[in-house]
Nucleic acid binder design. Sequence first.
DNA 1: TTATCTTTTGGGCAAACGTCCAGGGCGATC
DNA 2: GATCGCCCTGGACGTTTGCCCAAAAGATAA
Lengths: 191, 191
Amino acid sequence: MVERSAERGRATRQRLFDAAVALIGEVGWGGVTTRMVAERAGVAPGVVHYHFASVNDLLVEASAAFAGALFGEAARRLTEQPDIGSGLDWLLGELSGYTGADPASPLIVEMYLAAGRHPELRDRLRVMIDDFRSQVASWLRVNGHTGDAEAAAVLLAASVDGLVLHHSLDPATDIAALAAPLRAMLTGQPG
Amino acid sequence: MVERSAERGRATRQRLFDAAVALIGEVGWGGVTTRMVAERAGVAPGVVHYHFASVNDLLVEASAAFAGALFGEAARRLTEQPDIGSGLDWLLGELSGYTGADPASPLIVEMYLAAGRHPELRDRLRVMIDDFRSQVASWLRVNGHTGDAEAAAVLLAASVDGLVLHHSLDPATDIAALAAPLRAMLTGQPG
DNA sequence: TTATCTTTTGGGCAAACGTCCAGGGCGATC
DNA sequence: GATCGCCCTGGACGTTTGCCCAAAAGATAA
């Protein structure tokens, strides 16, 4: 077979992925153009349409791959925490790192919005969220959550995304102060 | 003065606002074009640049006005609830109405993202959020919140936006089930 | 070397873009 | 009726867009 060529192709494809992910965060989903992503990846404009049917296809593939890795990693790291309290501490630590300047936080939100306009992306994203929720829910149950663990997981996932959104608007927000109400929410014991 | 003409101008301006708000929700901030918004408002393309310096200017003005009204109304309605429990019920009722099909829910999120790229919008949005948070916080305090009311308000505002985002992705999510963890979060009494 | 594969190039195309502007309409004022 | 001020029209401009493609380049197999 054509081993070296294929390898080179895969590398280019990956560079296009990286460029797309960065640019979605910088200029928004609708602001990414063929030439932009090609220049960022260091290739000629034609390469984009050689590897992908359309720019939107590239954006869907790239963002889905990125989000899949991010959610998977987050779920893994969170659920390996020994108890809810330290899980929360880890989460808040991660959150304060997302200032909006990094590519990840706006990208995820852009993806949610794009999912509303692209059914294929919508389905893929839904699976990821479902997965994340159920992993968190079972982690909550194992660690002594007394209430509706599914509901708590749904709310936690939404809160995280909401906080990313708000935090990017105002990075001065005191994230650590949120530990108390979040703990109340997660322990499922409303006094 | 030229009373009739000015009035007609104001009406056109309002129609452009409405068209812009609807279109941001439908095609995204970056997807709104001069001709699109002109056609939706029922005017010639040139009118847009007669009333506004640029398309982006229109989007900023329109979305800020819309969000200001929405946040104001939400804060008013929430804080006129007699206790935290019924406030929560009202909030969840509103949330289940936002399915993502309406223009409001994606618009707000689009605005957050656009704010990261347009400092003027960012400042205006920040004021609105601050306002909403402090109104909610004082409402929480009045109604017997025992912990850090500011932190709870921040988390509540973020959760609402996050839930809007998640709910638009999966309208089947059971919103009512979130009442319990939200109540735990808001009463500020972690078991 | 020659032939065959995949990848890459750089330019070309029609369409859509934001913005501008000369001119027409229309009520109020003189 | 003439003039003024504001609003609106519709087309023009230069630029940028997504996508396409003939040809070159690189790697492998014969």
